[in-house]
Amino acid sequence: MLKINNLHASVEDKAILRGVNLEVKAGEVHAIMGPNGSGKSTLAAVIAGKEEYDVEEGEILFENENIDELAAEERAHKGIFMSFQYPVEIPGVSVTNFMKTAINETRKAKGLEDMPANEMLKLIREKSELLEIDRKFLSRSLNEGFSGGEKKRNEIFQMAILEPKLAILDETDSGLDIDALRIVANGVNKLKSKDNAVIVITHYQRLLDYIVPDFVHVLHNGKIVKSGTKELAHELEEKGYDWIKEEVNA
């Protein structure tokens, strides 16, 4: 589904990703871990199409197509979704109106008519129940004044509605208490199928108890320096990252 070859990316001439290789197949869950500042969010944003970053070398293939030239919205239309580490506040646009616009623009891109209003309502209701989101919440301005946990839950709510093929969850667990974590993880697991894939970016092993990864990668200094199975996450939890850094430097 996703194949990243030797990806180098920089911002304002500062190299951040320095040769990332990663392959994610349909049905798989990958976890990307790594110390702060190692480039995890950058990798997610580059896959999602943030223009601020310059891809200097390498390529990103999504379903065998090079998506380098595609705008963020076109990638979204193809089924790439990123749950933001820091969701953006948009005053004046309600959660509902935002989602209606996102749904209908995605449909438009696929040559479909607008979703009928009753179907839309049903979809929004269903998914808000899945993530235990209060009705009142939906008419509030997007992310404005939301707590950290509410923002993250809202990201997964959006994911549940858009049903992406590839979901990249950037530190969705940070800021969540254990109940919220369970709700979010449950939401992700409900959507999981053999046809889609998830990349979970996290600091902690905690989330991985709920969303169980098939592979775990460690990103360090803009490179994937170690890959393994879920045991690697446990090891990292116990030993921290220093041993990896040492291994790399050795």
Binding site: A45, A48, G49, K50, E51, E52, A71, A72, E73, R75, A76, H77, F81, M82, F84, P87, V88, E89, I90, F98, T101, A102, E105, T106, A109, Q158, L162
Partner: peptide
């Protein structure tokens, strides 16, 4: 700009 990217990443064209 960050709001723009956020919306576009949800499929809303520029």
């Amino acid at each position: 700009e960050s709001a723009m990217f956020y919306m576009r990443s949800r499929g809303i064209p520029e």
